[in-house]
Simulated assay, not measured.
Amino acid sequence: MALSLTAKTIDKYFGFLSQLDNRSKKNLIIKLTESIEEKEKKGISLKDISGAWDDSRESDEIIEEIRKSRVEKQDNIDFNEIPT
């Protein structure tokens, strides 16, 4: 969201800024100019942030590995038996 100024407000700023030394004015001009120059937007391709699963194994092998890595949950947890 950009701030918009009225001509009267701009004149007030100019009145203050016109009292600056030339070096400060030039630096301010450079900063303002840089702020309005359009910078090249780097687009992100959907292809760059997503992709297919990359694995040399067959799908059945991957599924089997996932199943073997699962931890069985215990239904009967007795919190009184926790070692201290």
Rank of each mutant, 00 (worst) to 15 (best):
A2Y: 08
A2D: 12
A2K: 10
A2G: 05
L3V: 08
L3S: 05
S4A: 07
L5G: 10
L5Y: 15
L5S: 10
T6N: 05
T6M: 07
A7L: 05
I10Y: 05
I10L: 13
D11Y: 09
K12W: 04
Y13W: 09
Y13V: 13
G15Q: 10
F16L: 10
S18R: 08
Q19L: 09
L20D: 02
D21M: 10
N22F: 10
R23D: 14
S24R: 13
K26A: 14
K26C: 05
N27A: 11
I29M: 12
K31D: 15
L32G: 10
T33V: 01
T33L: 01
S35C: 08
I36N: 02
E37S: 08
E37G: 01
E37C: 06
K39C: 00
G43Y: 09
G43L: 13
I44P: 09
L46C: 00
K47T: 12
K47E: 13
D48K: 14
D48P: 14
I49F: 09
I49P: 08
S50H: 01
S50N: 02
S50A: 03
G51A: 00
G51Q: 00
W53R: 09
W53E: 07
D54E: 03
D55V: 08
D55Q: 04
S56A: 06
R57D: 04
E58I: 01
D60R: 12
E61M: 11
E61P: 04
I63F: 11
I63L: 14
I66V: 15
I66H: 07
R67F: 15
S69L: 02
R70W: 08
R70M: 14
R70Y: 12
R70N: 10
V71C: 11
Q74E: 15
N76M: 12
F79G: 03
F79K: 02
F79A: 05
F79Q: 03
E81Y: 06
E81W: 03
I82G: 07
T84F: 15
T84L: 14
